[in-house]
Amino acid sequence: MVGGRTSAYVFVVLLCCLSCGTVASVRPLGQGRKAVSFSFGGPVTSVYDVDVPVPYSVIRLTYGLSKDTDLHFGVHPTMSLLANAGIDIGLSKHLTTESGLRPALCLGASLYGFCHINEFSSARVYPGISLIGSYAFFRSHNLLYFGAHALMQFTAPYVILAPLVGTEVPLGEKFAINAEALWYAPTEASKDRVVDYTLRPFDHGAAGFAAGVSYVF
């Protein structure tokens, strides 16, 4: 710890839990349909003197319970690599369809669970909600979306926000790719932290990026 903070503190990977990859659902999947997605990304930090988004990853399965409600379940490989179990499960309810200037709105509620495999007392559960608005563009094939995640816990900071803006681009009938820019924890001062976040808008939180690919069955 001589010499102050260091890129070696890749503890930052866990900050990515705030968003857990790209958003679970932007538009309804459709009743009975299934999809699988892989996403990765996180706040930008200097790792061995290279500024990169930390590659926090999520594999997520989504199932259309009804025409406007999706169920999703995710596993977190990056956490697994560190001997931790990480999962999330939740519902996404599509509240409105797009009409004129009014975006389509999707309200998500999830539970995130983490536990070190050798220490059951380390188990943590965090409720999270998200509100995502979206517009279709370019012949209605592509989506531009925006909104925020909010993760909650029983110690300060009690609510950790992550505003985001992203786009979803279909690749053929089955595949789509997502790209998001996020501002992790904008309400928290990020100067003088153990991790040296590279992008700190107004010295609060950390900016980052996430990307994902999904396949609809």
């Binding site: 503890f11 930052v12 153990v194």
Partner: peptide, 24 residues
């Protein structure tokens, strides 16, 4: 001199979540 409280404190300092140091 210049003592960190714990790995857990270091982790919470960067991740903000109330996770334990054993995670990392």
């Amino acid at each position: 001199e210049s003592a960190p409280a714990s790995i857990t404190a270091l982790l919470r300092d960067s991740a903000l979540l109330n996770l334990t140091g054993s995670y990392v």
